[in-house]
Amino acid sequence: MRNSIFVLVILGAWITACAAPPQTLTLATTTSTYDTGLLDAIIPKFEAQSNARVKVIAVGTGQALKLGGDGNADVVLVHAREQEDAFVRAADGINRREVMYNDFVVVGAKEDPAKIADALNAADAFKKIALLQATFVSRGDNSGTQTKEKSIWATTNLTPTKEMLWYQSIGQGMSETLIFANEKRAYTLTDRGTWLALQNKLPNLALLVGGATLAENKDKTLLNPYGVIPVNPAKHPNVNAALAEKFAAWITSPETQKLIGDFGKDKFGQALFYPNAGR
């Protein structure tokens, strides 16, 4: 009896020692996927399945794509369609796939001086803010969120510049921008996930445009698709292409897509991301 246990222990140690050391995958992604806790919730499953360690670098979309374009990341998960297409056109990435989408909302001081709660859509709300010259905080960091903000301003035929004192471009992340807006009782555009995660720390702010949940968001221009793009090994031979492709296939697989769709329901009472791979 004693001997057999001993043999088992030795066998166990031997198997463990023989198992290949985990490979490392560097994932460059946006702060929204990380700050909401989505990646922490799903990535351990990939690590266990693929015997891999995932290093997550959470930055703005601009820098995430730059990391990929420099061959410093193996795969990117970002949300700024035009920049993504440019990334693929430049042969820095290959085989972009849809993963999921979330949406943006406009938040602002509870008093809502520009009365944007009655606005038809985000563009209308922006017009009202500009008309009153109510303080608006911009991410100003070339992130996916700011790219969306700029595209909304473009439809209003207004181009805010830093000379306009009501328009404050602070060049910081979403959480910092929301905290700034809370202090200044200002308006800003945010992704719903970060808003929900931070909401109870923002007593002066209220969600004004975008509806209580993603399904209730009437302004379809506020939808925000995420894509996964493995970095092109032909251009950047040092990347771990096989593992990057494995990750892209895994995050678009039905099982992971279900995990993504369920994420946040227990904590916020609503999903933060809607999976849409292969659709």
Binding site: G62, E163, G171, Q172
Partner: peptide
Amino acid sequence: VMLVGGNIAGSTRVLTTAIVLETRQGEF
């Protein structure tokens, strides 16, 4: 200066906070 100034373009952005911003945007 990042925390208390807020890095506002044209009003509280200084050299160091501008460096952080450019780096985060990949504008090395």
